Computed example of a mutant assay.
Amino acid sequence: MLKSIVFILATLAAAIVAAPTIGLFERGDTDLIKRQQRIATQYWANDKADLDWVSGPAGAYSVNWTNPSGGNFVVGKGYFGQGMLFNYTGTFSTTGNAYLGLYGWTTDPLVEYYVIENFGDKHNPTDNSNHTCYGTFNTDGGTYEVWMKWRVNAPSIIGTATFPQFWSVRTKRHVGGTINTTAHFAAWARAGLKLGKHRDGMVIGIEGQTGQGAAAITAGVRPTTTVKETTTLVHHSERPRATNTCTRKL
């Protein structure tokens, strides 16, 4: 998992007053991305990671990786804000342990959160005995499972700490579309999972662990063609301690 996080403030048009971040992309206008003053960019990799990261204009980036055992990185681009309709498009493929998702942090309370859109055939990100499923909800043209996992004495944006991770995991994987962040935050709240104050923006990111892969993503732009869906793997090699909990409708 992520050991640390770096968000870089990129000023695209310093003379322009920053636009509101609530509902930035409701009109699906690809030029909206060009009118935003601030872009959040994340790059982190541990000393075993082997990747080639290219930051393109505005919300675009690409990454290719061949990670040995123990390699790990998180890269992505996004925006500063809270509730928004977050558009993105691109490609993502992996033969190892990696996933694509919206990612961010809050403080007071400290929470690391993910909206998982896709992942490799060898790894479900909820495959951990510490995960608990709280139920499912529908948004963005699909169904998501809501999960939570505790991280104990782990690195965070405020240093070593104990904190929960909140997860929305799409039951039919895809690459590209609109993520209604307000709908996800509301579903977590209905599950009793409380977020705090949003920090450092949110990105549509790639986390790559052991294995190979490639991705080219643009934040702020909707797909122009039909997006293919693939049923999410349900097998867990590590069974969650709490079972049969994903049946609740949130």
Rank of each mutant, 00 (worst) to 15 (best):
L2A: 00
K3C: 15
I8K: 13
T11H: 12
L12I: 15
A14W: 11
A14Q: 11
V17T: 11
P20I: 06
G23A: 05
G23E: 03
R27K: 13
G28F: 14
G28A: 13
R35Q: 07
Q37L: 09
A40Q: 01
W44S: 03
W44F: 07
A49S: 14
D50G: 14
S55A: 09
G56R: 12
A58W: 13
A60F: 13
Y61D: 02
S62G: 06
N67T: 05
P68D: 10
P68M: 07
G70H: 02
V74I: 02
G76D: 06
K77S: 00
K77G: 00
G81Q: 04
Q82K: 14
L85V: 07
T95G: 14
G96N: 07
N97T: 12
A98F: 02
Y99W: 01
Y103A: 04
W105Q: 01
T107Q: 09
D108R: 08
D108E: 12
E112N: 05
F119Y: 00
F119N: 01
H123S: 10
G135V: 00
N138Q: 03
T143L: 14
Y144P: 00
R151L: 02
I157T: 03
G159P: 11
A161Q: 05
P164F: 02
Q165K: 05
S168Y: 07
V169W: 10
R170W: 04
K172G: 02
K172M: 04
G176C: 00
G177E: 00
F185C: 10
A186P: 13
L193G: 02
L193F: 04
R199V: 12
G201I: 01
T210Y: 15
G211H: 11
Q212S: 07
G213C: 08
A214Q: 03
A214M: 08
A215R: 01
A216V: 05
T218A: 05
A219T: 01
A219F: 06
V221R: 02
V221T: 04
V221G: 03
T225N: 10
T225A: 11
T226R: 15
K228H: 07
E229M: 09
R239Y: 13
P240H: 01
T243H: 14
T243R: 13
C246D: 00
L250S: 06
L250E: 04
